[in-house]
Amino acid sequence: MKVEIIGAGIAGLTAAIALEKRGFQPKIYEQAKNLKAVGAGIILASNAMQVYKRLGLDEQLKSQGIPLNALNITNQKLQLISKVDLNYFKNKYNLQSLAIHRGKLQQVLLDNLKHTEICLDHQLKNITQQNEAYQLDFENGKSVNSTLLIGADGIHSKVRANLFPTGKIRSMRQICWRGVTQFELPSIYKNELNEAWGRGDRFAFVQFSHDQIYWYAVKSFKQSEKEFSEDHLSSYFQKYPPIVQEIIKATPAHTLHTTIMQDLKPISNWHDEFSCLIGDAAHATTPNMGQGACQSIEDAYILADCLSKQNVLDAFKTYQKIRMPKAHQVVKQSWQIGKISHWENPVAIAIRNKLLKLIPQKLNQVQLEKLFQLEKIIG
């Protein structure tokens, strides 16, 4: 069966690989004129790595990233507040979470496509239903017919806008700067992600290759993101330890990726008879849990699994029933973390940090265990 996929991001590429392995013939339409190794870092948590292990990609990815042993939340002085030891999940699933450059992940996925054609410079314009098919019209003037359509085209999805026009994009009123730079981290920070929570802001860093780190900085704004400038970034985080200043200053300003923290307010339906949404097109989340891409990867694999076992409509229904509760819980929880981590009242911050310290590491582990567990349909 032929499948048209809109979007050659992580969700679209992973879906194409999973579908190929099940005998489908995917074809991807991507709005970009070329696929560059762009972006910053990404965390492939245990749930994503379990999927890639099933797809036979885990060893290739391990060679391109750095394994993570811990996820830490600290105060503004980089003093530990909360820690999740990832070695438990390493032993349970016989794999490790990875920090990796998004471009390297993209290249591994591209290298593992066997016969999927990627049509570049194809920005979707309109979708028209014609009996038991869709006519897809692109901005370049071309049109194609589709009997099985997957929308993997991100938070601003044209597929969703055409077929499920109910999505509302929400802003957290926070601006995020992401950077990649050559930097030698002290040994105490290696193989772990550290996120420091300040007062209305936070800063995080992680090593993702032998000589590079990925970092991000987030700050709340009152009226507009224009309140802040990349040129003065180091001054916004001057109350943090010297290593934070060193990391910022080691990163050329023109290489930064600046975005507004936003998500998609949960919608109640991801599919109709012939089309289905996956990834950010269905449930875009703020990146406060490092689960945006991971949830997209789960979507791609589970949808392919459902399509290989059921007729299209039943497969879409099963996929939505399995994936929606977990994905929406991630959206909700990530939004809450984004708010709590940016409290500004000193008393509230002190209480928050004290309470986080009191949470047993075992409880953090149990919560992540639910997040990392893949649904039973995956065999």
Rank of each mutant, 00 (worst) to 15 (best):
M49P: 03
L98D: 07
Q373G: 01
Q329E: 14
W197M: 06
F208H: 15
L149Y: 07
K62S: 10
E230N: 15
F138M: 06
C119L: 01
K370G: 12
M1E: 11
I248V: 14
Y301E: 10
A250H: 14
G7K: 13
D272E: 13
W177T: 12
V159R: 05
P26R: 03
I100S: 00
H257D: 12
G154S: 07
G7F: 05
G292R: 07
L374E: 13
V244P: 09
T255C: 04
V331M: 07
T128A: 10
E227W: 02
E59M: 03
Q238G: 02
H122F: 08
E184F: 01
P241A: 04
I155Y: 04
P241Y: 06
L71H: 07
S268W: 00
A16I: 14
E298K: 05
L149F: 02
K326C: 05
S224M: 01
A250D: 02
S171A: 08
N194A: 01
V51N: 06
Y301T: 00
L55C: 05
Y216F: 15
S171P: 02
I188S: 14
G154A: 08
A281R: 05
T259V: 14
G200H: 01
T259F: 11
K27G: 02
Q123I: 04
E369A: 09
D201K: 14
I155V: 12
T128F: 10
K158V: 11
D272I: 04
R160E: 12
R160V: 05
C119E: 13
I377R: 04
H101L: 11
L68W: 13
I188T: 06
G41M: 06
I340L: 15
K114D: 12
E225T: 10
T128R: 12
L356W: 07
H271C: 07
I247L: 10
Q25K: 13
I28T: 04
L68I: 15
G198A: 08
K370M: 03
Q365D: 08
